[in-house]
Structures are given as structure tokens and as C-alpha cells.
Design a protein around this nucleic acid. Structure first.
Lengths: 354, 354
DNA sequence: CTGTTAGCGCTTTCAC
DNA sequence: GTGAAAGCGCTAACAG
């Protein structure tokens, strides 16, 4: 078996609690004893058993990370891996480890309890990625007694903190940009209505129209499902309108790419015949046939912030706002037409190209 | 505080040990008592404390995952996230959770001990991704007493198991393919020499030449650094040769893409003036200006296998081979010229396009 | 300053 | 079948 605190104690002829104090930097221990302990620790290759410590301190320095609704193989976006990297880095700096739960979201048959999973492992806090608004586990999450951060999905009631990109602002920027280069009939392809991001981006879109005195036209707002196919489908409907849009803003890049493919099939030139703006800045956006103008969220920053927020909660008690909005950025490429027309000189997202 | 085994015991008037036995499915407990316990467990919302259990059982059902040498933000390839997804799924099925270490590899200053990190958290096994052959921690890894799997990096001595794509075979396939469509002067852009994959892919390349009676030409083998820039740099050197190659096989897609960009700058047509084959099948490969022919490794399968191997070791003792080679696949696209010439009718990797 | 005692939540002999 | 007792490795009172 591996060396324990008792072995050290026996080795240098003192009590186990003295060793514990020496190791944990208590002041009521003589410097000389401490040195002898530290020396023995090194010599005998002792490492504390954090789990045993946790049993009594009720703190494991562990953050549970739930990566839910993952697509088949790999993470949904490359965005997720940026987020995770951010979480990891913050956790590392603050001295926490991450427990990556292997659950892939609520299983229809057997009901998993997030609270139970967290309790089993005695984690100090939890972060949820890809939580769906219709996840039955949400109710339970409202009642847990440890800090919880959700990415992108605000939970009403309870004290979970939601960290995410500012969707209203992002959609506002995208829409305003299209307006600024002359478009008036701007369609919006939303994601499915259950997603909060859909609702928020819709709000931003509508606000931009309203702020620019453009009347809302219901026929120009259609619903997709965050997939390329659904974006294509929606675009067909839009183009079939008596008075079709001159520009399309899609709630995600995949749908925007679907829109562009439909345009291509109908011999409509992007951006001249149809301007397109997406959301997310997925890697494909930069290398699409017509490079896609889009809104970029800084996944790394979001992840870092989420970890920071829960760790602050653990250490200082809940003080943060219940909702943390992270900045977003407009990345102008070719698909909106601004660069061609020389109307835009800002961020081209070139560095993004891998 | 949350409900413990004692609470249950008190509630239904039996001893704590009886409750434990009921919960853990021991046979020496009456069915009636078991039912009463299970009912109370449900009613009172009891979840076992796996950490306390681990303290005595010396097993935590946790696998440590080290994601080393991560690039700045996000994981090195999207490949990594596939691997992690595979690990997660296997772990989930087998009832293990993953502990994601926040270490980003050996820090120059303070020496981290992998062994120590593992011991602290009492993990049952560890998987290392992105371990470098010059990592000073490797020595220590040879002596640990729990199952260890390394991805792609075999460790000499010790009983760590290495799981990875068959690099020799992959390079052999790539090179043979170029030979089969008529190339004789085939250059190889290798990764940096410390990487095992570099050595193995070089072996495959040389073997293919030799098997086809093509003499080895040292000037055609150059070293890159797995980056687009280094691939471009290497290609410039190759094209400056008195007798330049007609084809280039690069040890990774990024370098292959660098090669293609140099060709484009010099008005060389790919594949006609210069055939290019990469390795990895990164997402960009399929959507490059000239879609890249490459070798695909199934990251998900590799991750799944790695988890499976260590879990088998945990549960049944070490039986697996010390090296597990996973199959690779040649994905023929445009950059090698085979499809244009009608020489190839196999895998086009079309489904890969996102 | 140091040691003794108790106990975190759980499992596991071993009597009964 | 069931419970009492011991203890996993550690920390936290509290005496001394």
C-alpha cells in the first residue's frame, strides 16, 4: 500500500495530527518539526489522499462538468472544446480538478438525477453544457445546495448562474449590420423555439429592426432546427414568398450555410442576390465557398468565466449576478456584401482561418 | 446535511451495516428487509457517497484523463474531442466517471508528478493524451501500480498500454497509393523527430518505397513541425531541389495544406503539377480549395478502445497487449489526382463533409 | 507547540 | 439474517 500520514508520523516519531498540521500549513507547529515532516514527505513519496480529506472537510476541490446532448461522436461544435479548455484552465489556476460526467443527458428510460450524480462524487460545484430547456432534471437543479453554472440556458428560480454570449446583442449587431449596408427586407431563420438562444436572438433581431424604423414582417421570421438541412428548407420557403427578402440572418452558421447552398442551387449570387449572415463562427464559416459573415462568441472566455463564477461561489459564497453576458463580435467576411462594397474595414476574422 | 446510510438505518430501525448490505446486493439479507431499505432510499433521496466507499474499497470508479500539450485555446485537433467522446462513452457504459486533469503538461518550473496527481484522487486508471516522448514524467509512469493507457506514445518498460492508429500502415497506404498512380519521386514531410508518430510514419513511407523498388532519396525527406507554416516551408525547400518531387506526402493535414498553398503561390496545379496527400483527415481537409486526400484515423474508436483497455485491466487484471493498433483508412479526394484520372473508385470520404 | 480523541460515511469481518 | 465493532486516511476540537 502507499504511504499515509501515519507512516510519516511513525517514521519521525510524532503524532499523525502533527503531521497533518505541518502539511496543511497550520501555524501552531514548530518550524523545525515542519521541516522534518516535509523532508519525510519528500523522501517517502507521500501524497495526501484528497478523498479522505474531503470526507471530513466536505470539500473535494472538484467541479463536475456535464457535457449534455453531445452529438454522436465528438462534441457538438468545436466551440464546446474551446469552452472546456477555458474551464480547464481556470480550474487549474484555482486548484480544482474537473469531473467529466459520462452521462449524455436525460435517458428516456432510467431517470438520472443530476443531484444524485453530484452528491455521489461530492463535487463542490457543477457546470452544465448543452442543457436543454426541456430537460426534466432542471427542476431538481433549482434546489441543489452547491454552486451551479449553466452555459447559455438560464434557469428560472433557484440560484444557478447562467454564463453565455450576449445573444440579444449579437443578433442586434448582425441585423444592424445588414441594415447599415442597405437591406430593408431581412429574414430571420430562428432555431427551435425551446432554445433560449433562439428567443434571445429573435429579440435582438426585432430590436434592430425597430430601432431602425423597419416594420416587423411575420412572414420573414421562420423556424429552423439548427441544422444545415433546416436552414435550406427555411430558405426555400423564404424565397418562395411573393416579396422575398434580400438578406437572411440565421441563428447559427449551419443554417446560414444551408441558406447559401439553396441560393447556389437557384443561381442566386451571395451576397449580391442574397446576403447571408450566420451566428457562431464555426470553423467551416471561414472556408465556405462564400466565406460567411457571422457573430463570434469566445468559447474559451465563456468557459473560463463559468469556472470562475462557480469557484468564486464556492470560496466566497454566492455573490455573482445570476446571469453573466459575455461579449460577442461581428466577423465580416464575404457573404453579407459589405467588404465587396467597401463598406466595412473592421474585423475580417482572418486569423480565424486555421 | 444530506441523508446518509445511518439515517436510513435509524428510519427503519435496523443497523447501518444491514442497510449497506441491502444496497450493495449482498445475499445474506432478507428480501423483505431489502425492500424496506430500497423504499426508504427512494423516499428519503439517499445517494451513496462514492468517496467514502472508495476509502475502504480502494476503488473510485474513476479514470483520470490527462489532456497534455493542449494548444492555447481549445484542443489540438477536433480529433481530440472525438477521442474524448469515445472515452466518455465507454466509461459511461462501464460505470466509470472521468477525472479531467487541468494540468497542461510538464511545467518547466515546478515538477508535477503524474503519480502524485493520480494518487491524490485515488483514480483507478489513467489515460494520457498528447504525452510527449520527452516528458520527464514518463519515467515515473513506468512504475505506477494502476492501469495506464497512452494515446499514440508507446512507453518502453513498465506496463502502460499504448493505443493508437497504425501509423506505419497509414503511411504505407498513402505512399503506395501515390506510387500506384504513377509517382516515383515522392517527398515526405515529417513531423518533428521527437514524436513517435513521425518515426512510425517515416517507416511506413520508406517501406512502401522499398516494397515497390523505389530507391530512397534523402533529399526528399524533410522535417516539419506539424504546422501549416512548417509544411509550406518544407515544400519550398523541396521545390527548390534540382530534381523536385512530383508528389508530397505530409505527416499531417496541416502541413499538407501548407504544401498546397505554396503550390498555389507558384502556380503549380494540385494534383497535376504536384500531388499532395496528408494524414489525419481534419475537417478542413474535405473543404480545402483542392479537397485533400488523406489518411483517416477513427478518433472515437481509439478513445473508446483506450478506455476499454484500462477498464478491462482494472476489472480483470492486465491481460491486453501492450500496444493496440487501430485501423486507418485512405480517403481519396482530389489532391492526389487518382479520382481525376479515374484510377480510384473507393472511399471518397464524402460523408465526412459536415 | 504537541498528542489524544473522535469521527467524516461507508464497508467488512465476525459473532450472535 | 442481523448487528456490533473496527477501520479506510484524514482533520478538528480539545487538552496538556
Amino acid at each position: 500500500m502507499s504511504v499515509t500520514i501515519k507512516d510519516i508520523a511513525r517514521e519521525i516519531g510524532i503524532s499523525a495530527s502533527a503531521v497533518s498540521k505541518a502539511i496543511n500549513g497550520y501555524s501552531d507547529i514548530s518550524e523545525e518539526t515542519r521541516q522534518r515532516v516535509l523532508e519525510a514527505v519528500r523522501r517517502m513519496g507521500y501524497t495526501p489522499n484528497i478523498l479522505a480529506r474531503g470526507l471530513i472537510r466536505r470539500q473535494t476541490n472538484t467541479i463536475g462538468l456535464f457535457v449534455l446532448s453531445r452529438s454522436n461522436k465528438g462534441f457538438s461544435h468545436s466551440f464546446s472544446s474551446e469552452v472546456i479548455a477555458g474551464i480547464m484552465d481556470c480550474a487549474g489556476v484555482r486548484g480544482y480538478e474537473l469531473l467529466l460526467y459520462s452521462t449524455n443527458g436525460p435517458t428516456p428510460g432510467k431517470q438520472v438525477s443530476y443531484r444524485g450524480l453530484c452528491h455521489e462524487r461530492q463535487i463542490d460545484a457543477a457546470i452544465f453544457m448543452g442543457l436543454r430547456t426541456d430537460d426534466p432534471g432542471i427542476e431538481e437543479l433549482k434546489t441543489v445546495d452547491f454552486p451551479v453554472a449553466t452555459l447559455d440556458v438560464p434557469i428560472r428560480g433557484g440560484k444557478a448562474i447562467c454564463v453565455g454570449g450576449d445573444n440579444v446583442e449579437g443578433a442586434y449587431m448582425a441585423t444592424s449590420h445588414l441594415i447599415s449596408i442597405g437591406h430593408r427586407r431581412i429574414a430571420y431563420i430562428n432555431g427551435h423555439a425551446q432554445a433560449i438562444v433562439s428567443q434571445e436572438r429573435l429579440t435582438g433581431y426585432l430590436r434592430a429592426l425597430s430601432d431602425n424604423g423597419i416594420p416587423e414582417d411575420n412572414s420573414l421570421v421562420v423556424e429552423g432546427a439548427f441544422t444545415e438541412e433546416s436552414g435550406a428548407e427555411a430558405t426555400k420557403r423564404l424565397l418562395g414568398l411573393p416579396n422575398p427578402p434580400t438578406a437572411v440572418f440565421a441563428a447559427c452558421d449551419s443554417m446560414a450555410i444551408g441558406a447559401m447552398s439553396v441560393a447556389a442551387m437557384r443561381n442566386l449570387k451571395v451576397p449580391d442576390d442574397l446576403a447571408v449572415v450566420g451566428y457562431d463562427d464555426i470553423p467551416l464559416a471561414a472556408v465556405a465557398e462564400v466565406p460567411l459573415t457571422t457573430i463570434r462568441q469566445d468559447g474559451y472566455a465563456i468557459g473560463y468565466k463559468a469556472a470562475e463564477v462557480v469557484i468564486n461561489d464556492i470560496e466566497r459564497g454566492s455573490t455573482a449576478a445570476r446571469r453573466v453576458l459575455m461579449g460577442v463580435e461581428l466577423v465580416v467576411r464575404e457573404s453579407c456584401g459589405a467588404r465587396k462594397k467597401g463598406l466595412y474595414r473592421g474585423n475580417t476574422g482572418i486569423k480565424q482561418r486555421v
